[in-house]
Design a protein around this nucleic acid. Structure first.
Length: 464
RNA sequence: GGCGGCUUAGCCAAGUGGUAAGGCAGAGGUCUGCAAAACCUCCAUUCUCCGGUUCAAAUCCGGAAGCCGCCUCCA
């Protein structure tokens, strides 16, 4: 089965063929580190994690770059409001961002270049664009000349000639040749305070779009395989990246563009004024673990809008329990007689899982295969028709697909006092003191420990 | 005004021509302390509506309704 992706640029599903055999170079638009990232941001990062992990599963060697935007209007404004340096301010939120990635089980990219560390590369690129007649300077500001790039608008399918000069164009940009031209470099002004770079093209700071072009080129070359991001970045950001990169290099920039759809909350785009705005930290504080959020953000196909609700999160918690209970209970299973069916069932899981993910990361289909497998193996187990070898084969398959899903919860050691309570409860049950036993169980639940009385004795797990 | 997407069971969600995956909820059952947890079984003659093409349509074509988004802050 060939691996197929929907390419936003051609608007068609295409077989994935890397530029270099067995290797994938991909770029992802990362966060602007001026606050805690919200769950909509993480929907995109989870999609990219699924893509990355599945490419690795398929045996590709990945070079993945995610930029950190640590300079822009918002970072400057908010750091000044706090009276701390831009660096101190963005370092705080960069650290928080990596903590959040860990919470969600998102695998690290190979490179996380920060914009402020790559101003030289951006300046070089701007100079090149000016030399080639693709950019011009007005009062220390540099703009990209869209008229010099005939393909502009091709990604977003916009006809620039038909665009109206809308009310949203800022009035202070009157000096541009065309309202559509975008800033590559912003000359220093008083509002920037001590935030500026002294460079060959003057004192100022880079625009947002140029950083992704300059940094992707530095780490991935002028032409690479996959560029991802949220749909809202398609225009103008990615359109501008194409214009800058191809304008500077005269070479195709990216082979496959992949965009993830929006996350909505209660059917609407998140906004602070609507009261439906959540950071990952808000969700964690409400008692959900990162892996539940991971499941929710991942379980709906990346090109479908995902409506976030707490009811949905509860349902996902249960589904995730089923996944983890299966692995845990199967690991504890002592094995029985083989019925000869298990190998076929396990093979079906792997085939189905791969066939679905090969089809533009059809995760819902893949999860359907996983839950089919869980039911089929549980049935054999209930009838004692699963041998030790078959059990291990099934577990190995689950571990294999979990390198992509990363849903499995390893049960770390529990505290001595919790252990003592579990022992006390077992004693209480022996002496038929069920009131005390239930009291202890409820107490442990508050601490996030769920107990299960099985024929082989008591089991515990952490609530996810 | 221009461009794009979506509408499948109570909720979430796969399925792009061959007769409706999966999860949650619900019902029944196994185990058990008439418990919890876990596990098993059942649960859409039908895919927003109206036409059309076809031996065959949730899937293709035309039309209607509703919802979401993009058109220079935005994952």
């Amino acid at each position: 089965m060939p691996l197929v992706f929907k390419n936003s640029f051609t608007r068609a599903k295409e077989e994935f063929k890397p530029i270099d055999d067995g290797k994938v170079r991909m770029y992802t638009c990362g966060p602007t580190v001026y606050g805690f990232a919200h769950i909509g941001n993480f929907r995109t990062f989870i999609f990219e994690d699924l893509l990355r992990r599945y490419l690795k599963y398929k045996g590709y060697e990945i070079t993945h770059v995610m930029n950190l935007t640590d300079i822009d209007d918002k970072t400057i404004r908010d750091s000044q409001a706090e009276g701390i340096s831009l660096k101190e301010f963005t370092t705080r939120y960069t650290k928080a961002f990596f903590e959040d990635l860990d919470t969600l089980g998102i695998e690290r990219a190979e490179h996380y270049p920060a914009a402020t560390d790559h101003v030289d590369e951006m300046v070089a690129m701007i100079k090149k664009l000016v030399e080639r007649g693709m950019a011009y300077e007005v009062d220390g500001n540099y703009y990209f000349k869209i008229a010099a790039f005939p393909n502009y608008g091709k990604l977003a399918n916009l006809d620039m000639a038909g665009l109206k000069a809308g009310a949203r164009v800022a009035s202070d940009e009157y000096e541009k040749d065309s309202v559509s031209d975008f800033a590559l470099w912003k000359a220093w002004d008083e509002a920037d305070g001590d935030v500026y770079f002294e460079t060959e093209i003057g004192k100022g700071r880079p625009g947002w779009h140029i950083e992704c072009s300059a940094m992707s080129m530095k780490y991935l070359g002028q032409h690479f395989d996959i560029h991802t991001g949220g749909v809202d970045n398609m225009f103008p950001h990615h359109e501008n990246e194409i214009a800058q990169s191809e304008g500077a290099n005269d070479k195709k920039f990216v082979n496959y563009w992949m965009h993830s759809e929006y996350l909505l909350v209660d059917g609407r785009k998140m906004s602070k004024s609507m009261g439906n705005f959540f950071t990952l930290r808000d969700i964690i504080e409400k008692g959900y673990s990162g892996v539940v959020m991971r499941y929710m953000l991942m379980a709906t196909h990346y090109r479908q809008q995902l409506n976030f609700t707490f009811d949905g999160l509860e349902a996902d918690r249960k589904a995730l329990d089923r996944y983890n209970d299966f692995i845990s209970n199967l690991s504890d299973y002592a094995g029985g007689e083989s019925s000869g069916e298990a190998s076929e069932i396990t093979k079906k899981l792997l085939t189905g899982f791969e066939t679905h993910l090969d089809d533009d990361l059809n995760i819902s289909g893949a999860l359907g295969d996983v839950f089919d497998f869980i039911r089929d193996i549980n049935r054999l187990k209930a009838e004692n028709k699963l041998s030790v070898e078959e059990r291990d084969e099934a577990l190995a398959a689950m571990r294999k697909i979990d390198t992509v899903l990363a849903f499995e919860q390893k049960q770390e050691m529990i505290d001595a006092d919790i252990e003592a309570l579990i022992v006390e409860r077992t004693e209480a049950r022996k002496s038929k003191d069920f009131a005390r036993a239930d009291e202890i169980r409820d107490e442990l639940l508050v601490q996030g420990i769920v107990l299960e009385d099985t024929a082989q004795g008591v089991k515990w797990k952490r609530k996810v």
